[in-house]
Design a protein around this nucleic acid. Sequence first.
DNA 1: TTAGAGATGATC
DNA 2: ATCATCTCTAAG
Length: 193
Amino acid sequence: MRFGKRVPRSFYRRDPREVAPDLLGKILVAADGRAGRIVEVEAYCGEIDPAAHSYRGKTARNATMFGPPGHMYVYFTYGMHWCANAVCGDAGVGLGVLIRALEPLAGLARMRAARPRARRDRDLCSGPARLTQAMGITGAHDGIDLVTGRSGYSLVDDGVEANGVAGARIGISRATDALWRWYLPDNENVSRR
DNA sequence: TTAGAGATGATC
DNA sequence: ATCATCTCTAAG
């Protein structure tokens, strides 16, 4: 791959609270050359996590979360936004990591075209719905495999170290005490700076 | 720079 | 009614 080597499926087959901090620094790559480094993530922990879509079991919307790890769960929210997760753990359990922000690395012109309202480049991918817009991710991509990248998006590792800090998750009303958000504290592309 | 509210529709 | 959000507007 152009930006790094494939993140293997075994990476995802773990507790999302382990996967999430390890995902910081990895790169989300689109087939058309758009790419961004992950700088903010949140873990969602299935049946033990009241804030997770999968908390009450499998439904039509969250079915991808209960599928194999390393696939992308894309959901629609607030009537207008798409958000993307990496499915974690074993199939059938309903675990995932929400990708909340990217540092734009390549294909900036395409990202700006996809988000004409973004005033500065740091506004392109600094939020879960912003990054899907910038990267061209929609519900059409729900369930695609991020390991093989055969459906247009993949996650790769270029070896750059990224040490994050933990905090409370954003935009939820239950399980607000769990420190299951990780981000790079000095990165300008993190949401809610 | 920050705070508040509207947009907009699927979900359960 | 709620929601894993964003953007604009108004005010400081």
